[in-house]
Design a protein around this nucleic acid. Sequence first.
RNA 1: GUGGCUAUAGCUCAGGUGGUAGAGCACCUCGUUGUGGUCGAGGGGGUCGCGGGUUCAAGUCCCGUUAGCCACCCCA
Length: 456
Amino acid sequence: MARVRPLSGFPEWTPAERIVEASVLDSLREVFQLHGFAEIETRAVETVDRLAGKSEAAKEIYTLGRLNAEEGSEAKLGLHFDLTLPFARYVEEFQNELAFPFRRFQIQKVWRGERPQEGRYREFYQADIDVVARQTLPAHADVEVAVVMARALAALPVPGVTMRVNNRRLVEGFYRGVGIGDIAGALRSVDKLDKIGPDGVRTELIEQDIPESAAAAILDLAQISAPDAGFVAAVEDLWASSTTVHDPAEAEQELRAGLAELVALVEGVNAAVPGTAVADLRIARGLDYYTGSVYETFLTGHEDLGSICSGGRYDSLVAGGGFPGVGMSIGVSRLVSRMLGAGLVRASRPVPTAVLVAVTDEASRATSVRIADALRGRRIAAEVAPSAAKFGKQIQYADKRGIPFVWFPDAGSGDAESESTGGEVKDIRSGDQTPADPTSWEPPAADLHPRIVPAD
RNA sequence: GUGGCUAUAGCUCAGGUGGUAGAGCACCUCGUUGUGGUCGAGGGGGUCGCGGGUUCAAGUCCCGUUAGCCACCCCA
């Protein structure tokens, strides 16, 4: 028989790890719903031509087909690689049934055929929220989406996060004002600032035929950051000293609009979750459909992991125009894998069971089942021991699974028809054992369900 | 897609210059005959990723292949 080997990039968790992941998913869902976002789920597949669309993301798409499908007999399908594109299709398709602005969240697996690494998977969960309008979407939606995500992340058992935000209008206005034609290309280089440093970026920019003075100006811009409106004066000063085009009025208008939006964003997020947002004018985001606010979020002390929650503002969700929106996406699998891998948290036990009901002998298994049912009827998770092994073995069974309590049924009268459901319950951690009645006994609240606890 | 490293028991890993495979942990049994964890004794478990080559002899050397890890690219 072939050896079982993990498939790279397709993570699978143990039951205890899954409890951590599920609790993260539950927590996110709760915060999203609390802010009035409606849940949708889209199918896992889209047609390949729609998925492949524009970018070079096409290479990452997993295609799907029947083994014996006839040539050309069916539409080519692919697994979605994010939740935004399926959402766009969904909005287009259901536009007459949705009320706008439409606020939705979506938590699903996505698939990308990339080379996996730590925190980079081929199959992973994303948790998206978006607000989409029909014609125009006010800028306060940009703030709201970021606030919801900041709160969602703050509710998780992780160190704090820093949300680095920027604004494309600001950057594009500035870039045009210093005479840069290929804004996307320049942004791409500026985005590498952390990795290759200012000199590296300068070299790349000059290779793109950007004048040295302009390269210097946008590098200076990229190095501005502030946790409040303090960046505005710095940008204005830089603008005044580096504008080179003849008529910068239009560019300046964009710059100022972007500045205002960015100030509102930083201040809005920090008012809701203090210390979270930082205006960082180097944040570029590779995706070219963003047109306003852009966001990247880093886990404090785990910046090497990359962004765990990113997104931005886009002019038009669908090809024909209209439907402006703003959205962010949490890389849940990336986040959870680090939480587990770095020992930030663990589950208090890998099974839901709070009580193992021991079986005295197979003849009286029914008594044990009755006790377990009495507990279950009161929402206390219970299971019956798999065999009437020696009590020591049955305790060991519970111990290995982290089940905190073992219930020993009464020896009883020996009458198989006896209604007796009493016995003694033992806390196997302390060894304390006391008589108890399954119609009234309760475990401590902390033992009722598996909990997420700090790892040792 | 590009480059580097790795592959031996369920897990983590030892196995100079070729000589027929080991440890720790985990698992099972017993000591302890229906109340666990400690301790002690014993036990099961590996065609050394796969295919080929060199050799009297390959876990070890060579070639190929597959898979995994890391970095780049890109991104959650």
